[in-house]
Write a protein that binds this DNA or RNA. Structure first.
Length: 529
RNA sequence: GGGCGCGUAGCUCAAGUGGCAGAGCAGCGGCCUUUUAAGCCGUUGGUUGGGGGUUCGAGUCCCUCCGCGCCCA
């Protein structure tokens, strides 16, 4: 059932009724637009240069402002390209038609108007309306119909819940998403130009992997199979290297069943690519070039402002070992602490209190994100990471606790993550087993054993390096937005009170779960060896 | 998960230590043929997020639930 209509909406419903009574369809099937607002203005300027009279056009769009002055009414309509002014004059249309417009058309309605273009006394290019037609009557008034300085539409909750209204009244919000599309386009162009193949790998996966994150779980009724929404593309893209593709990339959605913050949304867009015969240092050079390219394509320059900081991609990007970065900011040399217990004691001795004792890698990661990451405003590569939180990265020769991995930070955020990829199937199997031992059984962030991935690797995987990057965060940087929600069209929010519904079609899943519970001891999926 | 803050008309916001719920914009009725946040006159509109409590009296104080924001894990 629809909600109750507000008094303002009832006024407009009454107008719909009256239009129909007059034989006028308030939602006709077709428009006869001949010009966008932009094309109309260009056509007028061309005629003006040729000293021709203004051409007659039919424009269409949403009514955004109305000024009634008695025997003339000025209005502005907006379409996807801009705005144009309409003049409804009694001595052109007749008094009755003018009155009809004034009474029946409201801000927010879509309409089309036909007439010759002219300049008003103040010089604005305007349609002298000879005919007009309702295209779609709006029932709910747009928030902040008048774009006044005093009453902007700014309630963040309403802006995200009703993004359509946000977009309808905020051209600058529409611009964010045009920029976002330009960023993705620039990335594709760059990768395609460098011989990469764009691929699509499963979103529904029998086993999740490739990152440390908790997954969403779903269920296929016909196959009677539990499935996960992917948390990364990594393991499938690397299977493709076994299949002799040398350079592959995917741009798509990842899903992580975790908290929501200014830089986290449960679903987000990721770029990952893998290159045979490269290592992580080759990648650093390439990533640097790629992001400079994107900035040039999207912004036209390699400098931009993010939250008051001027970020310059053209400057050299520092490369700092993780050990050094943590030592500089905390005075702790993680290399002196080969296990979690020792490192934990060292942190406490410095008065640094992590939330809880944890494995060595997790403690180092906590030090990194707490003391180092927020300081890294200019693009910076931090490299050489703890082995125990990087089960898919190749060890650094001669340093068993460290792997060849880097993360890229810009604007105080982690933007990308990369390794020289582990391609030794025996080492990989050991890593999976270590994950099973080092992490608690109920720690969903531990990387599960993936036997099929090992099988792929046993056929031989070329040495390679891979990179992953959050498109949403890159968009935040290039559009200077403080929150990931500003760059996601429909960010996730809690359901409003009264809109929670019982799930539809959940019965097969419930039956399967009960069955699974009964059979668990004998046939648990995803068992560790 | 924890801390702080917020929720009042369609939108943006007011409303001393508890004392008649208001303004601008929009809406509705008028006047006005060159406006650009048009102007002028008049006017409608509220379960103050939901529920409970204290009180003669609650937007305001207390409890609880819901949602949102910021900070922390």
């Amino acid at each position: 059932m629809p909600r109750e209509y507000t008094p303002l909406e009832q006024v407009r419903l009454e107008k719909i009724r009256q239009l129909r009574e007059m034989g006028i369809e308030p939602y006709p099937n077709r428009s006869n637009r001949t010009h966008t607002t932009q094309q109309a203005i260009e056509a007028f300027l061309e005629a003006e240069r040729a000293q021709q009279p203004g051409p007659t056009v039919t424009v269409a769009g949403r009514l955004r402002a109305v000024r009634q002055l008695g025997r003339i009414t000025f209005a502005h309509i907006e379409d996807g390209h801009g705005r144009i002014q309409l003049a409804f004059q009694a001595d052109v249309l007749g008094k009755d038609r003018l009155k009809f417009f004034n009474k029946m058309f409201d801000i927010g309605d879509f309409l089309e108007a036909t007439g010759p273009l002219f300049r008003t006394r103040t010089g604005e290019i305007t349609v002298r309306v000879e005919d007009f037609k309702m295209l779609a009557k709006a029932i709910t008034p747009l928030p902040a119909e008048k774009r006044t300085k005093h009453t902007p539409f700014s309630d963040p909750e309403l802006r995200y819940r009703q993004r359509y209204a946000d977009l309808a009244v905020h051209p600058e919000v529409r611009e964010i998403f045009r920029t976002r599309a330009a960023i993705v386009r620039a990335l594709r162009n760059f990768l395609d130009a460098h011989g990469f193949l764009e691929v699509e790998t499963p979103i529904l996966q029998p086993l999740y992997g490739g990152a440390a994150a908790r997954p969403f779980i779903t269920y296929h009724n016909e196959l009677e199979q539990f499935l996960y929404l992917r948390i990364s593309f990594e393991l499938y893209l690397k299977r493709l290297l076994v299949g002799m593709f040398e350079r592959v990339y995917e741009i798509g959605r990842d899903f992580r069943n975790e908290g929501i913050s200014f830089k986290h949304n449960p679903e987000f867009t990721q770029l990952e690519f893998y290159v045979a015969y490269w290592d992580y240092f080759t990648l650093m050079d390439f990533v640097q070039e790629m992001l400079r390219h994107v900035a040039r394509e999207v912004l036209g320059r390699e400098q931009f402002t993010f939250q008051g900081h001027t970020i310059d991609l053209a400057q050299p990007w520092p490369r700092i070992p993780l050990r050094q970065a943590v030592l500089d900011r905390t005075g702790i040399d993680v290399a002196e602490h080969p296990d979690g217990e020792s490192l934990y004691q060292a942190m406490r001795a410095k008065g640094i209190q992590p939330p809880r004792p944890a494995p060595r890698g997790k403690l180092i990661d906590w030090l990194l994100s707490t003391y180092v990451e927020p300081e890294l405003i200019q693009p910076t590569f931090i490299y050489d990471y703890p082995r125990d939180i990087s089960p898919l990265a190749k060890s650094k020769p001669g340093d068993p606790n460290t792997v060849e991995r880097f993360e890229l930070f810009i604007g105080g955020m982690e933007l990308g993550n990369a390794f020289t990829e582990l391609n030794d199937p025996l080492d990989q199997e050991q890593r999976f087993l270590e994950q099973g031992r080092a992490f608690a059984q109920d720690d969903e962030e531990r990387h599960p054993m993936d036997e099929d991935y090992l099988q792929a690797m046993r056929y031989g995987m070329p040495p390679n390096a891979g990179f992953g990057m959050g498109i949403d965060r890159l968009t935040m940087l290039l559009t200077d937005r403080p929150s990931i929600r500003e760059v996601i069209l429909f960010p996730h929010l809690r359901p409003e009170e009264g809109t929670r519904r019982p799930p539809v079609g959940i019965e097969p899943l419930m039956r399967a779960l009960q069955q699974f519970q009964r059979e668990k001891p004998a046939s648990g999926e995803n068992r560790e060896a």
